[in-house]
């Protein structure tokens, strides 16, 4: 099977869906032929599908999200891109008040087959406005589905599922995984929402995490294995719907849980997951749930500061060692 980068796998998924269904189109800032997207995910698509279906927009985030919504409820399947996840703040009304609520407020009269792609995460010294991880905000908004692929294989399968989903899907990527390679089939496949991927199986402790932290957790698990600690690593792949079953079953097996994401700690998705596990598997826990997150600060610029901000393999290992 050929190895592909996360970036190319995503593009392949987008391309396959655009070939399959002419209602699918892409819109966003600098996604067209001049630039191909800030992270080059859409490079080449304008040349293949034309400037109508791969549509550069003005710097108008609220209008990008709102126009995608208007197109979605009238027969198109838009994939809108917000260049950086931090900039979704400019489109919060359209995302959280409109797209998320339209179907409910209107009593099911319409569905909203909209995909909104954006990118989270630090590690590139882009400072406070281009590095945040804000997925918890959207998890707190009923009506949105949330995909959080960490690997190339998942990126392709999930973007295709997102495009075929009748509901608004927030499709979040991570800056530092675009170049990571994995085996990705050339042929079509879909990955269902709400189905976690277990990267390592283990008996002593469960690590649940998202985005780059899944990669860090796997590195940690491999090192812990050498120290005789058997670690299970779970990547939820979608936050809404959430695969609780895989997580709860794992906790029932290992009795110990470490949650790791790049979000600032207070109100992070890790807090929600910890709450779910204590509600549903309290009696199986042999130790307190540990959370590894960023501190409650804006994302700093200077390399040593940013390094101190973003959780790493060593912090994950320390958290595991505290409870095993």
């Amino acid at each position: 099977m050929p190895e592909k980068t996360y970036r190319d796998a995503l593009k392949e998924g987008l391309r396959e869906e655009m070939l399959r269904d002419e209602r699918v189109f892409i819109m966003g800032e600098d996604i067209g032929r001049n630039w191909g997207g800030a992270f080059k995910v859409t490079k080449g698509l304008a040349e293949e599908f034309g400037d109508d279906r791969v549509r550069d927009t003005p710097i108008s985030e609220n209008a990008i999200a709102g126009a995608a919504l208007g197109a979605a409820i009238t027969g198109m399947i838009p994939v809108a891109e917000i260049m950086f996840g931090d900039l979704i703040t400019l489109a919060m009304d359209q995302v959280c008040n409109q797209a998320a609520k339209l179907r409910y407020m209107f009593g099911g009269q319409t569905s909203v087959p909209l995909v909104l792609r954006s990118v989270f995460g630090g590690g590139k010294n882009l400072a406070s406005h281009h590095s945040q991880s804000l997925e918890a905000w959207f998890m707190h908004t009923p009506g949105l589905k949330i995909a959080v692929p960490s690997f190339a294989y998942d990126a392709k399968g999930l973007i295709k599922t997102a495009i075929r989903d009748p509901d608004p899907v927030m499709f979040f990527e991570h800056k530092l995984v675009y170049d990571r390679k994995e085996e990705v089939p050339d042929e079509e496949y879909l990955i269902p929402f709400g189905k976690a991927r277990v990267h390592r199986e283990g008996d002593d402790v469960t690590i649940w995490g998202t985005f780059l932290m899944v990669h860090k957790a796997i590195e940690a698990a491999d090192e812990l294995a050498k120290q005789g600690i058997s670690t299970e690593v779970i990547d939820p792949r979608t936050l809404v719907p959430l695969d609780k079953r895989t997580l709860i079953d794992s906790v029932k097996k290992t009795g110990r849980l470490v949650l790791v994401t790049e979000e600032t700690k207070t109100g992070a998705t890790t807090a929600e997951i910890a709450a779910i596990v204590q509600e549903e598997a309290f009696d199986w826990l042999d130790a307190p749930i540990k959370r590894v997150n960023a501190p409650d600060t804006p994302v700093p610029f200077s390399p040593p500061l940013e390094q101190a901000f973003i959780p790493d393999k060593d912090r994950i290992i320390s958290a595991v060692r505290e409870i095993v």
Binding site: A63, G66, G70, A71, T74, D93, Q94, N97, Q98
Partner: peptide
């Protein structure tokens, strides 16, 4: 939400056009 309908209308019009 006052003024929130304008982008949605633009998108619906884009859909009619496309």
């Amino acid at each position: 939400v006052v003024a929130s309908g304008l982008p949605i209308a633009a998108g619906a019009a884009l859909s009619c056009q496309m």
